[in-house]
Simulated assay, not measured.
Amino acid sequence: MPNLRLLTWNINSVRLRLPLLAEVVRELAPDVVCLQETKCPDEFFPHEAIAALGFPYRTARGMKGYNGTAILSKLPFAERAADPNWCERGDCRHVGVDLDVPGGLELHDFYVPAGGDIPDRDLNPKFAHKLDFLAEVTAWTAARGPAKRAVLVGDLNIAPLEDDVWSHRQLLKIVSHTPVEVAALNAWAAAGEWHDAIRHFVPPPEKLYTWWSYRAKDWLAADRGRRLDHIWCSQDLAGKLARHHIHKAARGWTQASDHVPVLLELAL
Score class of each variant (00 low, 15 high):
Arg89His: 12
Gly145Cys: 07
Thr141Lys: 06
Glu206Ser: 15
Thr138Phe: 06
Cys92Val: 05
Pro84Glu: 02
Asp117Ile: 12
Asp100Leu: 11
Asp132Glu: 11
Gly154Asp: 00
Glu206Asn: 15
Pro160Phe: 03
Thr178Asp: 08
His108Leu: 13
Pro119Glu: 06
Gly90Thr: 13
Ile174Ala: 14
Cys87Trp: 00
Glu106Thr: 12
Pro125Asp: 11
Ala191Val: 06
His94Ala: 11
Lys126Ile: 04
Arg149Asn: 11
Gly96Tyr: 08
Leu161Arg: 10
Tyr209Ala: 11
Val112Gly: 05
Glu162Ser: 12
Gly96Ala: 15
Lys207Leu: 14
Glu106Tyr: 08
Leu161Pro: 06
Ser167Asn: 15
Ala197Arg: 13
Ala147His: 00
Lys130Gln: 06
Val101Ala: 09
Gly96Lys: 07
Glu162Lys: 12
Ala135His: 08
Ala147Pro: 00
Glu193Phe: 03
His195Met: 05
Gly116Val: 11
Ala114Glu: 04
Ala190Leu: 09
Val112Phe: 13
Pro84Met: 02
Asn157Pro: 07
Tyr111Pro: 00
Asp91Gly: 02
Asp83Leu: 08
Val95Ile: 15
Ser73Arg: 03
Leu172Trp: 07
Ala139Pro: 02
Leu75Ile: 09
Cys92Asp: 02
Ser167Lys: 13
Leu172Ala: 10
Lys207Arg: 15
Ala187Tyr: 04
Ile174Asp: 09
Trp194Ile: 03
Phe77Glu: 00
Ala184Arg: 04
Thr178Leu: 07
Pro204Lys: 09
Asp98Tyr: 01
His94Trp: 05
Ser167Ile: 13
Ser167Thr: 14
His168Thr: 04
Pro125Arg: 03
Val97Tyr: 00
Lys173Tyr: 13
Glu206Phe: 15
Leu105Arg: 09
Pro84Tyr: 02
His129Gln: 09
Tyr111Asn: 08
Gln170Ile: 08
Val153Lys: 01
Gly116Ile: 05
Pro160His: 03
Ala114Pro: 03
Thr210Val: 12
Leu134Lys: 01
Leu123Lys: 10
Asn186Lys: 14
Val137Lys: 02
Asn186Ala: 14
Ala183Gln: 09
Phe201Val: 14
Asn85Pro: 13
Asn157Thr: 02
Gly115Pro: 09
Ala197Trp: 13
Val97His: 02
Leu208Lys: 08
Tyr209Pro: 09
Ala187Ile: 08
Leu99Ser: 05
His94Val: 03
Asp132Arg: 12
Ala114Thr: 04
Arg89Gly: 14
Leu72Asn: 01
Ile174Pro: 09
